[in-house]
C-alpha cells in the first residue's frame, strides 16, 4: 500500500516537473503556510490529533505535523484547512 502511494507520488512529481507546475499541485500534499511566528495555515490536512496551548498536532497525508509554541489556539478549522495562531516556536514532522 505504502509502495503504491510512493509510486503514485513519484509519477505525479515527475508530471509536475515536466509541466513546470508548482510542487504539490497535482497531488494531495499538505500545504503549510507560515506567517512569521504568529500564524500558520495547513491546507489538505486529515484531522486534528492533539490541541493544547503549547502543542498542536495535525495529521496530514505526508505524516503528522507538530507545532510547538505559546498560547496557541485555532483561529478556524474547516474540512480543508486549519489555522493556528499564537507564538509559534517550533514546527516539526513526526
Amino acid at each position: 500500500m505504502k509502495e503504491n502511494k510512493k509510486q503514485k507520488r513519484g509519477v505525479l512529481s515527475k508530471a509536475e516537473g515536466i509541466l513546470d507546475f508548482a510542487t504539490g499541485t497535482l497531488g494531495n500534499l499538505p500545504n503549510i503556510t507560515l506567517y512569521g511566528t504568529a500564524a500558520l495555515e495547513i491546507d489538505n490536512f486529515k484531522s486534528l490529533l492533539d490541541f493544547s496551548p503549547d502543542t498542536v498536532r495535525v495529521n496530514t497525508s505526508d505524516g503528522i505535523v507538530r507545532i510547538d509554541g505559546i498560547k496557541l489556539h485555532l483561529a478556524f478549522m474547516s474540512d480543508e484547512s486549519i489555522s493556528v495562531k499564537g507564538e509559534i516556536r517550533n514546527l516539526s514532522f513526526e
Binding site: L48, H73, L74, A75, F76, M77, D79
Partner: peptide, 16 residues
C-alpha cells in the same frame, strides 16, 4: 472537532 469538520461545519475561535 474532527467530526464537526467532517460534516462541513465551519468552526472558529477554538480555544482549550
Amino acid at each position: 472537532i474532527n467530526i464537526a469538520t467532517g460534516k462541513n461545519i465551519f468552526i472558529h475561535d477554538i480555544v482549550r
